[in-house]
């Protein structure tokens, strides 16, 4: 198993930490992992993205331009990465803020309204965990138990009381993600 993922959105949406959580969870599940962020001026308010790779084998390139899964959280990211999904791959997008829906017919496309769901949960900070939940529903490459272990590694100890809330958010994401195009 090798899963090559690009996660892209606005700085502040938790794009980089989503990749880190997936990678930490991968470590907990004895996988090889690699996380490569964009670190340019776009970090200050523009688009941010990271490449996360989770694999059973040694990872060669940490930098890629074709992906098994693209998770796009805003329109510029959709414009940039829709075409980077491998044929037969997966595109997950957050509906909020998307003005042009994806055009590809040769990939699986899923939509998630994670922002609305996070508002309903009274905590927009769990937005990215809802998206992770959605992703893991479609591609169950990591066990929930290991994701929780991963979260414990990423979050400073003083925030460990928020782990149940994050778990709830992951489960929420699993419930609300829907297919728009299924191959």
């Amino acid at each position: 198993m090798t899963e090559e993922i690009i996660i892209a959105g606005f700085g502040g949406q938790g794009v980089l930490s989503m990749g880190q959580i997936l990678c930490y969870s991968g470590v907990m599940q004895n996988k090889e992992v690699s996380w490569m962020p964009s670190y340019g001026p776009e970090m200050r308010g523009g688009t941010a993205n990271c490449t996360a790779i989770i694999s059973d084998e040694l990872i060669s390139s940490p930098v890629l331009n074709r992906f098994d899964t693209a998770i796009v959280l805003n329109q510029p990211s959709m414009d940039k990465f829709e075409d980077a999904v491998k044929p037969g791959g997966l595109l997950i997008y957050e509906k909020n803020g998307i003005t042009r829906t994806p055009k590809r017919k040769d990939i699986n496309i899923c939509a998630i309204e994670a922002y609305d769901a996070s508002v309903k949960m009274n905590n927009t900070k769990v937005f990215n965990m809802i998206v992770i939940g959605g992703f893991l529903k479609i591609k169950p490459i990591l066990d929930l138990e290991n994701v929780i272990k991963g979260l414990k590694k990423v979050l400073p100890e003083r925030y460990h009381n928020l782990i149940p809330l994050n778990e709830e958010a992951i489960k929420k994401g699993m419930d609300i993600i829907t297919y728009e195009n299924k191959l």
Binding site: Q20, E32, V33, S34, W35, M36, P37, Y39, P62, V63
Partner: peptide, 10 residues
């Protein structure tokens, strides 16, 4: 370089 410096790995 910036790749190895910025990336995370085990």
């Amino acid at each position: 370089d910036g790749i190895i410096g910025q990336m995370m790995e085990k």
